[in-house]
Design a protein around this nucleic acid. Sequence first.
DNA 1: TCCCTATATCGATGAATGTCAATATCCAGT
DNA 2: ACTGGATATTGACATTCATCGATATAGGGA
Lengths: 116, 116
Amino acid sequence: MSTPTLLPITDAAACCAPLTRETLTARKADDLARSLKALADPTRLRLISIVAASEGAEACACDLTEPVGLSQPTVSHHLKVLVDAGFLSRTQRGTWAYFKLVPGSLDAVSRLLTSA
Amino acid sequence: MSTPTLLPITDAAACCAPLTRETLTARKADDLARSLKALADPTRLRLISIVAASEGAEACACDLTEPVGLSQPTVSHHLKVLVDAGFLSRTQRGTWAYFKLVPGSLDAVSRLLTSA
DNA sequence: TCCCTATATCGATGAATGTCAATATCCAGT
DNA sequence: ACTGGATATTGACATTCATCGATATAGGGA
């Protein structure tokens, strides 16, 4: 609950035409910018990529720290950003936290950027 | 020439599979993140949107300051960021500067995010 | 040449962000 | 209950960024 203002990407994408079709309202531009900000970090892109390429598009947090070469708190922070933005979901299994790619979340953003 | 390290989005998109197919290298994650950062601002999204919706996907800078409600230097700065990132192109005609959407630049980013 | 207008650049400032070390929390096994 | 391991939170710090006012540059008339 530390970032209560974040909306899942689905909310921003459910409504509207791609941004090249008609001019964005300030509100919708804000929502889309928030989603893009969550993606606009090399570490977070790699985390998504690793999770997506794993079995069942799901990976344990314990397997994510080493490949990105950053500290455990930093990786935990990035994962939280991605969960808050709606790109990953989190499941606790015992001591371990598993992160799964939310189906369609990337496509929702993608659709907003496409002109066709 | 003030931001010489920026690559046009086309360079990042020309090469590779969507990020859900295989894990991103650090280098490619960096390139994509740079492109997404250029998009991840509400004002810049609105500027792109306005330009794209104009006649011939082109608009005069003089018509862009008022709709976004920010100062002229700030709008000029945002336009420069978008040009450097390869999303807009700039043409000088007399005293006026015209900005045009670079065809395919948004789709290039979009393709990288799509899983299908 | 001298203004006027359009745009870009500079310098400063406050806010947001990525990172880490230290610490807290939570769960499983003994 | 205690211990150990996995993850999250906190606090601090340096960097980046969005924004503005002031200024510079450049082009088109008169």
